[in-house]
Amino acid sequence: MLKIFLHQLNIIWSQIVSLWLVFLHLFHKSDTVEYPDVKPHMFPRWRGRIILTRDPDGEERCVACNLCAVACPVDCIALQKTEDEDGRWYPEFFRINFSRCIMCGFCEEACPTHAIQLTPDFEMAEYVRQDMVWEKEHMLIDGTGKYHDYNFYKVAGKAIGGKGKGEALDELPPTDRRSLMP
């Protein structure tokens, strides 16, 4: 009999404790983020929406080398190389099917020109799946993104408009093929 009584008491006590603890929460800092009124803090290296960036001169960084596409484990990147009249490579089209993308960031790791970058933006939901297919014009931003200084064509040996042979970083002027001087 006593045993039953003590048991009932225990239950009532535990409920009082629960009520007290819940009451104390009135004075705690709230854990709930009032999204979308309040935006969470995203760290710069968060792997979210993919962008294409420009080099410090304002030109497209992507050279259409296809390395992001081949690195992509879900094969959701497709592009086609073309070049301007001065020999600069760039993508004719550059398409990411975000409905397949798993935000793994391999494309960014593979990119030799810092063109493709993942950003902290995660708000990518759409009502229609077709709207998750993004083309270059949707992804290309006007800035350099996370990496400000790198300019691939200033380092590469290929001549493009405005940069001739021997004018890249750490290059000698072109040799004279008619010279036999040592």
Partner: peptide, 16 residues
Amino acid sequence: HRYSGRTAMRANINVH
């Protein structure tokens, strides 16, 4: 085996 773009090459026409 390294063929790329399988899920994006026709996605502009239809994502399915």
